[in-house]
């Protein structure tokens, strides 16, 4: 049983890292949103499995919230925003796909080295989970750095949050207060972003962050 528990957790968390890599090279917005939905599904499964293994029912709630909000509600509304703003075109990745993927591999290696060494005495299940979670967090960050488009930055941020929830679920008996709050913060953050996106749309006819960058000319003349 314990072997199976370990393997399945490993498989799911590894799948999450894989999904993060797929996110990294998506160059179409609709593709990005669909892969993010997959990412959230994998997270829900992973958290659900942790709930089963640790026998802590409150984690099921976290899994359900992840599934409902991040795999269904958010992708659907993002697709709607995309249609309303008319941004179907492809998005460029700064530095190109190849470099980004290589950097991603480097980050995963880094997180393995750091986490596995730091948690030598911890429970192996939690240990591996934490290493995977850090990989997802770092890959999410990489995605935010390599994208200029506001919607894809938001998706990068949400995939990063998924990594955090994976870490929180892996930590045995972590109080409910944190998981709920994380989820809440995502919802709040999403509302904030929604407002922002619409305002940005009103003002510039674009959601490209680069365009906003150009508007600021603070340098002394």
């Amino acid at each position: 049983m314990s072997n199976l528990a370990f393997d399945v957790a490993h498989l799911l968390a590894g799948g999450l890292v894989l999904a993060s890599f797929i996110l990294l090279y998506q160059d179409r917005l609709s593709g990005l949103i669909h892969v993010f939905a997959l990412h959230a599904c994998l997270l829900a499964l992973s958290v659900g499995w942790q709930a089963w293994v640790q026998q802590s029912p409150h984690l099921y709630l976290t899994a359900v919230i992840a599934l409902a909000f991040k795999a269904i509600v958010i992708p659907v509304s993002l697709l709607r925003i995309m249609r309303r703003l008319g941004i179907h075109r492809s998005i460029d990745i700064i530095g190109g796909v190849g470099t980004t993927m290589l950097l991603g591999i480097g980050l995963v290696a880094l997180s393995m080295v750091v986490m596995l060494r730091a948690t030598e005495f911890a429970d192996p299940l939690a240990r591996e989970d934490l290493a995977f979670a850090l990989s997802v967090v770092l890959l999410g960050m990489l995605m935010m750095v390599t994208r200029r488009n506001a919607v894809s930055q938001v998706i990068g941020f949400m995939s990063l949050e998924n990594g955090l929830i994976l870490a929180a679920a892996g930590a045995k008996g972590m109080p409910l207060v944190v998981e709920i709050s994380v989820t809440f913060s995502i919802v709040i953050a999403f509302i904030v972003i929604g407002i922002f996106l619409f305002r940005i749309r009103e003002h510039f006819d674009t959601v490209d962050v680069q365009a906003i960058d150009d508007l600021r000319g603070e340098r002394r003349e």
């Binding site: 730091a118 939690a126 934490l130 850090l134 967090v137 941020f157 990063l160 930590a171 045995k172 994380v182």
Partner: peptide, 18 residues
């Protein structure tokens, strides 16, 4: 991003305390 890093640190503190 900052707050995400802080949460990861918070989780690690919990793991150290647990």
């Amino acid at each position: 991003v900052g707050i995400a890093l802080a949460l990861f640190g918070t989780i690690l503190i919990y793991m150290a305390a647990e």
